[in-house]
Amino acid sequence: MADGRPARPRRSGGGGGRPFAAAVTGRTNLVISALCRSTEELYTFLSEGIGALPGVHTAESVLTLRRVKTLTAEHR
């Protein structure tokens, strides 16, 4: 950013929550963990959030599926 602060991806359309971000060394400079509820939300986060940042030339994503809630039947 012009004022010296680092640019941050914006939330667009209520998607792409960012519970974790860190500067790292190696092949990449930044790692972001995002919770997206659909593929459309992931695409919006990557294209309008991360991809819109100045200086971002490439982005790599890795999907990790996680079960949030399970409905179980109680046996009596």
Rank of each mutant, 00 (worst) to 15 (best):
1 M>N: 12
2 A>N: 10
3 D>V: 14
3 D>R: 13
4 G>V: 06
4 G>Y: 11
5 R>Q: 08
6 P>F: 12
8 R>M: 13
8 R>K: 12
9 P>K: 13
10 R>S: 08
12 S>A: 09
12 S>M: 07
14 G>N: 15
15 G>P: 03
15 G>L: 11
16 G>H: 11
17 G>H: 04
18 R>G: 02
18 R>D: 08
20 F>V: 10
20 F>G: 05
20 F>E: 15
20 F>Q: 12
20 F>T: 06
21 A>M: 01
21 A>P: 00
23 A>L: 10
24 V>W: 01
24 V>G: 04
25 T>P: 00
25 T>D: 13
26 G>N: 07
26 G>V: 07
26 G>L: 09
26 G>M: 10
27 R>D: 14
28 T>N: 11
30 L>Q: 04
30 L>S: 02
32 I>V: 08
32 I>W: 00
35 L>Y: 10
35 L>N: 08
35 L>W: 10
36 C>Q: 05
36 C>M: 07
36 C>G: 01
36 C>S: 04
37 R>M: 05
37 R>L: 11
38 S>T: 05
39 T>I: 03
39 T>L: 08
39 T>S: 10
39 T>A: 12
39 T>F: 08
40 E>N: 05
41 E>I: 10
42 L>T: 03
43 Y>L: 11
43 Y>C: 03
43 Y>H: 07
44 T>P: 00
45 F>H: 00
46 L>P: 00
46 L>M: 14
47 S>G: 00
47 S>N: 06
47 S>M: 04
47 S>A: 06
47 S>L: 09
48 E>G: 00
48 E>C: 06
49 G>P: 02
49 G>V: 03
49 G>Q: 00
49 G>E: 02
49 G>A: 02
51 G>C: 13
51 G>A: 11
51 G>F: 13
52 A>E: 06
52 A>Q: 08
54 P>E: 10
54 P>M: 12
55 G>D: 10
55 G>K: 09
56 V>K: 09
57 H>G: 11
58 T>S: 15
58 T>V: 02
58 T>N: 15
59 A>I: 06
61 S>C: 13
61 S>N: 13
63 L>P: 02
63 L>G: 04
64 T>F: 11
64 T>H: 12
64 T>C: 11
64 T>V: 09
64 T>Q: 12
65 L>F: 14
65 L>I: 06
67 R>S: 05
68 V>R: 09
68 V>M: 06
69 K>N: 07
69 K>I: 02
71 L>W: 08
72 T>D: 04
72 T>L: 05
72 T>S: 03
72 T>P: 01
73 A>N: 01
74 E>G: 03
76 R>S: 07
